[in-house]
Simulated assay, not measured.
Amino acid sequence: MRKSTSDRYGSVAITIHWLTAILIVVLLSTGFNAADSADSATKAQFLRVHIPVAVVVFLLTAFRVFWWIARDKKPDPVPGLPRWQEFLARNVHFLIYAIIFIMVASGIGMMVLSGAGPAVFGGGGALPDFRDYAPRTPHGIGANLLVLLLVGHIGAALYHQFIRRDGLISRMWYRGARSRVESR
């Protein structure tokens, strides 16, 4: 279990990052599909995936925050990175974490206030119209903001990879056996 160094992320941070990224794609897909579905049974099927995956993303994100605070440090900024880009990157990451926590809270709020748990997991009853519950608004806004932030995050990573060519993406990937041998 490698911790981060001044120039790259450690294996724990890398694993959490990529696992969370994959699960967020699943969340966005199932969430938007559930919201767009007129059929209650189809909506419930999407939610049966969406809700447990959301719990896992919440736990991974909470662990990630704990990891940064208590166990590890983030690498130094990329050399030569303009201050405004460093500021923007730091704030985009913060907003992604904050939106994840807000989305979880609003999702729990919708489930509790609507009483939809039995309809989703127990197979009984009709699903309520989630638009009738106040947490639906921040949940929907959060999903759209998360999409925008992720597009910006991915766009910035691709900019660094293909325009700046500064190796930023390699900081968030596992070291191969060759790079371990070369670094000795």
Score class of each variant (00 low, 15 high):
D132N: 09
R8E: 00
I22V: 13
V78D: 11
R165S: 11
W84Y: 10
A156I: 07
M172R: 03
R131K: 15
L127M: 11
L113V: 01
G176R: 08
V78K: 03
P138N: 06
T137W: 11
T137N: 06
L149M: 01
W68I: 14
S40K: 03
Y97D: 12
W67F: 06
G142R: 00
P77Y: 03
M103R: 09
V112P: 03
G152N: 00
T15V: 05
G80I: 06
V65Q: 03
S6Q: 12
A177K: 12
N91T: 14
L59W: 00
G115T: 04
I154F: 07
A89Y: 04
L81M: 14
T15K: 00
W68P: 07
A35N: 12
M111W: 04
K74D: 09
I51D: 04
W18N: 07
A157L: 14
G31Q: 01
I24W: 05
V104E: 01
Y159D: 10
R171V: 01
I102M: 15
A134M: 09
G167N: 03
D129Y: 06
H153K: 09
L19M: 08
V147M: 03
D36Y: 08
R8H: 05
W84V: 13
A34L: 01
S170A: 15
I14H: 13
S183Y: 05
I169G: 11
G142M: 02
P52W: 00
L27P: 00
G176L: 13
R165D: 07
W18E: 07
A54H: 02
L150S: 10
A44K: 01
W68Q: 14
S40A: 14
I24V: 14
P79R: 05
I99K: 02
L60N: 05
S106G: 03
G31F: 01
P77K: 01
G167W: 07
S40D: 10
T30Y: 00
I108H: 02
W68R: 15
R131E: 12
F32A: 10
G155N: 04
I108W: 04
L28S: 05
Q161F: 07
D132W: 01
R184Y: 08
P118A: 09
E182F: 14
R175A: 14
L145T: 12
M110A: 06
T61D: 06
I108S: 05
S11I: 02
V147Y: 00
R131T: 15
W68L: 11
A177I: 14
L149Q: 02
S179G: 04
R2D: 15
V104W: 04
H50A: 00
G125N: 00
V12E: 13
V151H: 09
I141C: 10
I163M: 13
G109A: 01
I22C: 14
S29W: 13
G176N: 10
R71Q: 14
A38Y: 15
I99D: 11
V25R: 07
P118D: 09
F94C: 12
K43H: 08
F130K: 02
L19W: 06
P138L: 10
P52T: 03
I24D: 09
T30G: 02
V120A: 06
P77C: 08
V55F: 09
H139R: 02
I154A: 15
K74R: 15
L113H: 02
